[in-house]
Design a protein around this nucleic acid. Sequence first.
RNA 1: GCGGGCGUAGCUCAAUGGUAGAGCAUCAGCCUUCCAAGCUGAAUGUUGACGGUUCGAGUCCGUUCGCCCGCUCCA
Length: 507
Amino acid sequence: MSKSTETMEKIVALCRRRGFIFGSSEIYGGLGGFWDYGPLGVELKRNIKDCWWNDMIKNPPTGPGGRKFQMVGVDCSIIMNPKVWEASGHVGGFSDPMVDCKETKNRYRADQLSVLQTKSGEGQMFAFATDDDESEDRARKKAAKYLKTSTDALAEMTTVVALETLETSTFPSILGPDAKEVGTLTEPRAFNLMFETFVGALQDSTSKAYLRPETAQGIFANFKNVMDSTRVKIPFGIGQIGKSFRNEINPRNFTFRSREFEQMEIEFFCDPKESMVWYEFWRDTRIKWYESLGIKSEKLRPREQGDEELAHYSDACTDIEYLFPFSDETQELEGVAHRGDFDLKAHGKAAKGKENAFAVLDDATKERFVPHVIEPSAGVDRFTLASITEAYSYDENRASPEFMKFHPRLAPIKAGVFPLVAKDGLPEIAEPIYADLRKHFFCQYDAKQTIGKRYARMDEAGTPFCFTIDHDTKEAGTVTVRNRDDASQERIDKSRCLEYLRDKLGI
RNA sequence: GCGGGCGUAGCUCAAUGGUAGAGCAUCAGCCUUCCAAGCUGAAUGUUGACGGUUCGAGUCCGUUCGCCCGCUCCA
C-alpha cells in the first residue's frame, strides 16, 4: 500500500471517529456515492459556505483597476422544468446508449449506427451513421478499398446490419465512422447521468423530471428576474449555493466524486469586450481565496484547458486543482470557465423564441448585446475534503500525534473551555466563561477525564485554542490558553478570553 | 465494466469444526494540580447476507452484497 493511500485511510478513519463524515445509511450497508456530515463536519462545511458567501456575495472583492461591481444571490429549486435541461444540452442524446470513438472522441447514438460487413461476417467492418448518405458513402468506399473491389461489386459481397445487433466482442473489428484505426469504438453505454423522477402522482413520460446536475441553469433561467427586480447593472454576478446530483458510474475517493454534492457557483455577466479581463480577474480571485483559507499554494495548481479540451462555446477555462493524498495527480476543486453568450442565447432561443431575448442595453453606445458569462464553479464537498486533508497533521513527538490544523475561519470548534479538575470550584468558574464565549463562537466545554485527553480530543477536532481554568484562576484571575499547533501555553486574564479569540482568529 | 484483495464489538485484531474473546475507545465511579497515566465496574455482536454440508459452522462449500486497490470511465 502506498504511503498516500495510508494517509488517506487515516484521514477517513479520523473523519468517522470524530464525527466529520459518515457513509450514508450505513446501518443498511451504505449506498455508494452518498455521504453524511456529522456534528463536526457540518460545522466545517457551513463555515466554508459562509466564508464563500461572505467573501464573494456580501462583501465581494474589488474588480480589476479598482472597479466596483454588484453581487447578488439566489436559491433555486432542485427540480426544474425539463425544458431547462433540453436547452442546456443535458438531455437529448444523453438519454440513450452511446458509443464513443476512442480515436476521434466522437460520440454516437448506438441506435443510429449501422455497420457494413461481409456476408460471411469475417474481416473488418465499417460503421456509418444510419440515414446519412455521405457517411454511408465513405464507409462503402473504405470497404471497397479494403476488399480490393469496386463499389459496384461491393453490394454483392456485403450486407448492412444495425450496430446494436452485433456482439460487443466483434467491436475490435469495426472501423468507426470517422476513425482511421480499426477497433476504436466502445461498447454502447447509457450516458444520462441525471437522476430522473416524476412530478405529480402519475408516473409517465409527461411527468418526467430531473434532479439538477448543476446549479448554474437556475441562475440563467432567473437572469431576467434578477435584472428586473434588483436594478443590478452589467457587470454583475449572481451566486448560488446548493445541492446537485449526478448519477456517477463509479464514485471513488471518499467524498471526492459523490452522486449528491453541493456547489458554490457564480455566474458573472459582463460586456463581451471586457470578458477576458473579468475571466482573468475571477480566476486569480478564486485562487487567492483558497490560499486565504489555508490551502498551500504549492498544492494548488491552476490548469488552463487547451483548445482541444474546451467546450465548443468556451473561449477559456481554468481548472483550479488540488493535490489530494489519494492521487499523484491534481484533482479539480473548481472550474473557472469563460462561457461566452452560450447559455443566455440558448435559453433566449428556447424559452423566448429568439437568441437575443436576454440582450441588455449598453448605456454608452445605445447598442444591445447579450452579456458574456464568467463562471467560477466550486465544489463545496471537494473543498471540504481538501481542507480536511490539508489540515491533517502527524507529529509522533506529540502525546496525540494526529491533529487537524484547520484555518481558524474553518475550524468547526473555535475554542475548548476546561476546568483543570472537576472539583475545588473550578467548574463554577469555567462554566460562565463558556456560556459567554458560545454566544459568539462555536465552543465546547469538557470537564471529563484528564486534561491531556481533552486536549487530544480538541486536537483531532482541529480546535485552535483551549482555555483551562486552574487554581491560579481563583487566586490571580488568569487562565491558561493552550495553542493547538505547537501545544504552547500562555496566561491571560479570564475576562479577556473573548477578546483573545477575536484577535487570534481574526474574525 | 474488468482484474485482484478484504469482510468478527466504534477501532486494531484473536478464537484445531465444539460456550464468540482481548487491547484501545466509550460510559459510571475513584484517583489525579496541564498533554491520550492508574484503579474498579458497565455496556458493546444476526461473525456482511442467503443457502448448503454436519450432531454441531466465525471456521468447509456455493451464491450474493459491500468496501479497498489497479485498469476503464468521468457530458
